[in-house]
Simulated assay, not measured.
Amino acid sequence: MALQARKDFKVVLKRKYFNPNLSRRQNISNGCAKRIPAPQWVWLLNHWKSDEGQLKSEKNKATRALQLNSRHTTRSRSNAVVLDQLELKEGRQIGRAELYVATHTRKDEKPIDDYSNDKIDEIRRKFDEDPSLIAEETHDNDFFSTLFPKERSGRRCGLGLLSGGATSGRIFEALVEMQEVREENKKLWSAVQMLMSNQAKLQQQYDELKSEVSAPERCPSIESSPIVNPGSPDHLQSMNGDNQADSVSHPKKKHEIQLEETRNTVLPCLGKTKSKIPQRTHHQK
Rank of each mutant, 00 (worst) to 15 (best):
N79E: 09
Q85F: 08
A62K: 12
K59R: 10
V81M: 12
T138I: 09
L147N: 05
R124K: 13
R96K: 10
V81C: 06
D114N: 05
R77D: 11
Q85N: 08
Q85T: 08
K119Y: 02
I123N: 01
V81P: 00
S78N: 04
K119D: 04
N60Y: 09
G95A: 05
R152W: 00
R77F: 06
E58S: 04
Y115T: 08
T103W: 00
H139T: 06
S116C: 13
V82M: 07
N69L: 10
K56W: 02
E137N: 13
E151G: 09
E122D: 14
N69Q: 06
E90R: 15
A62Q: 13
D108I: 12
R125C: 02
F143C: 03
Q85M: 12
E122S: 14
K150P: 01
R77C: 06
F144Y: 07
P149Q: 14
S153K: 15
Y100D: 04
K110C: 04
E87N: 01
T138H: 10
E98P: 00
V81T: 10
L99F: 05
E137D: 14
N117G: 12
S57I: 00
A102R: 03
E137K: 10
T146R: 15
F127A: 06
P131M: 04
Q54F: 00
T103A: 14
L83R: 07
L99T: 05
E151Y: 06
D113R: 10
D118N: 09
N69K: 07
D118Q: 13
V81R: 08
N69A: 05
Y100A: 01
T74P: 02
A80R: 15
T73N: 06
R96H: 04
F144L: 03
H139K: 09
D114Q: 09
H72R: 09
D121S: 13
K56Y: 00
E129Q: 12
S153M: 11
E129V: 10
K150N: 03
E151L: 13
D121Y: 08
E109Y: 12
H104V: 04
D128E: 15
E151A: 06
F144C: 05
K107A: 11
V81W: 07
I112W: 04
Q54Y: 00
A80S: 14
R152D: 04
Q54I: 03
I123P: 01
F148R: 06
R96I: 02
I134M: 11
